[in-house]
Design a protein around this nucleic acid. Structure first.
Lengths: 156, 156
DNA sequence: ATAATTAAGTCAAATATAGTCAAAGTCAAT
DNA sequence: ATTGACTTTGACTATATTTGACTTAATTAT
């Protein structure tokens, strides 16, 4: 039996998928009602699953006519996706950030499953085995170096 | 009368056997309950019987809706070459060692050119930016981790 | 303007899982 | 009887999810 957060995540992604535009607007209370949960659960889902690292941008408005808008960040080229990620890596990278990023790259078909596994294994905390905050800095440099390689790859 | 660990091992393998997919998801507490043992016994069974060396890959999630997922993996055909290299990496790796290894893997067609570049960029001294001898240890661990994932490729 | 109403946001406690580690127990081979 | 490998157990830790009380912001009504 799956948890409700995963179900709501799947639902929202499905709605984005079939949407004409690349964003959707939801009413927090309606979604909470639909899934029989408290409204703040929707915030939880958004904060843990629709992050910038995973390629989403969220905006909202309170009060009458309020909404939560979830936008899938679309770049024109793969190179742009990589630049975007590299930029956000400049200030260190936790393991979960690395995981989100790799999963996103896989999703956008910028890397293969094998490459995803290579990157994840290289940036795993049990691999680096360094004390914080050094570990997060080294991880960030490793990720940046690899993504740079992907970005400026001479075509074979 | 066999011990409980062997019985649980047999049970889990049976479940994998009859499963449609090549992986299963269990709830640690449920299995512990079924066999009347403490939950950590399940970890013991998994750590001793469902290791990568025996051809399994285990993932898990804590919290509500948590699970333990056990997957079957298959060995890469070039597994022996990789084992060989991994063994020789146990005592640290200089950058030139890393380069030699990557070229050998490329030559033996175990990795692609793109993968070669990824591995080299991750293990470069300007990426790691750590003082010796830490740097060579971290490089070795990174290489080992990456080669390990190549060796045990999930069949999914 | 001000108050009332309608939304969304925050945060921490409660709950639900799984992981770690070391002490204690078991058993077969000296 | 002793040793050593393997197993069992449970206290403690780590992490993810769920829930709800309280806060903040925007709009609407007076």
């Amino acid at each position: 039996m799956r948890n409700i957060s995963d179900i709501i995540e799947g639902y929202l992604k499905g709605v984005i998928e079939v949407s004409e535009r690349d964003y959707i607007e939801i009413k927090r209370n309606e979604v909470a009602e639909k899934f029989q949960c408290v409204p703040s659960q929707i915030n939880y889902v958004i904060n843990t699953r629709f992050t910038a690292d995973r390629g989403y941008l969220v905006e909202s408005k309170r009060g009458g006519g309020g909404y939560i808008r979830i936008k899938r960040i679309r770049h024109h080229t793969k190179s742009d996706v990589l630049s975007d990620i590299i930029e956000r890596l400049e200030h260190g990278a936790s393991q979960s950030m690395a995981e989100d990023i790799v999963f996103r790259l896989l999703n956008e078909e910028i890397i293969s499953k094998r490459e995803a596994k290579l990157i994840l294994s290289a940036s795993d905390r049990t691999t680096l085995l360094l004390p914080l905050p050094t570990r997060d800095d080294v991880r960030a440099r490793i990720l940046i170096a690899m993504l740079f390689t992907l970005k400026y790859q001479s075509s074979i």
